[in-house]
Design a protein around this nucleic acid. Structure first.
Lengths: 146, 146
DNA sequence: TTTTTTACTTGTGTTTCGCAAGCAAAATTA
DNA sequence: TAATTTTGCTTGCGAAACACAAGTAAAAAA
């Protein structure tokens, strides 16, 4: 692995891991958009170059935020899923979206603003819990090698 | 300004601004460590190269997260202070620290673990409110040009 | 008036990133 | 089963961001 912690500050240490470009975007795509495979990540709105994607998925796996597995009937396509450690980032993402919703509309007016955003605005914690719950349910539902 | 939003996703849009390297570190130094001047930032544990610091402070000012001012008795030294928009990032930082505290100690055991961390662990929202309150009090106390 | 401090710039490598192309192995199809 | 497609990943190359050292002008301090 290749993690260098700048210091012993809890804030900065978290940023040393999760502040790297693309990492939280990938976690969001897994958590919010249900993306699971290499191909799905490359097809995202926020397109990541494949070489970067490879490196970032490797890093996320090494740090225990995601794990790599497969469907029993497909030995080619890898499945990337969030660990508990990764799921625990949900509140961070929720706070980011909450902040963006309240503070970014002046310079970026077309941020999506649907029912989900309304739910998030009204009760951040309930929203985070709901998302985590759904992801955990999905993990019990889908068929993959443990 | 030089902001390019990847898409209209609230999560990604926040990251387009605040996911840039060093930005949240600088905000943390202002919020948690009370740093205000260019020199104080360069003296931090997490040392930023001066040219990068210049660029990042400029970006933070342009996006309205901080504002630049001066003390009335010192026309040389700039004062960098958080706006409401910047202060609103407190919950994001708190969630980051909370996550790091719970999930990073296995690979980085010496993350500081004092009273403040205990407070944060026990009640994230109270901790965030306390920090924001203190910063606002400070703004009313210190003498600077409005 | 000289010296120091402060905010910032410049210059030079180095690293990271973005884009296009390509590749091997597995899966699909014909 | 032979040919084609899909998938995960690598390579090469130019561009951008970053780190480090040095320097500068203006204000402040001595």
């Amino acid at each position: 692995m290749n993690v260098k912690f700048k210091c012993n500050c809890p804030f900065t240490s978290a940023l040393d891991i999760v502040g790297e470009k693309w990492l939280l975007v990938i976690v969001k795509q897994m958590l919010i958009e249900g993306k699971e495979t290499f191909k799905e990540f490359t097809e995202a709105d926020e397109a990541i170059a494949t070489n970067i994607l490879t490196a970032k998925l490797k890093f996320l796996e090494e740090t225990g935020i995601i794990f790599k597995t497969q469907r029993p009937d497909n030995k080619k396509t890898n499945l990337y899923l969030l660990t508990e450690k990764g799921l625990a980032l949900t509140p961070v993402l929720v706070e980011l979206a909450f902040w963006g919703d309240k503070n970014l509309r002046d310079i970026h007016p077309i941020i999506v603003n649907g029912e989900a955003m309304e739910f998030l605005r009204n009760d951040k914690m309930a929203f985070a819990n709901e998302i985590e719950k759904k992801y955990k349910e999905k993990l019990t539902t889908i068929n993959y090698l443990h």
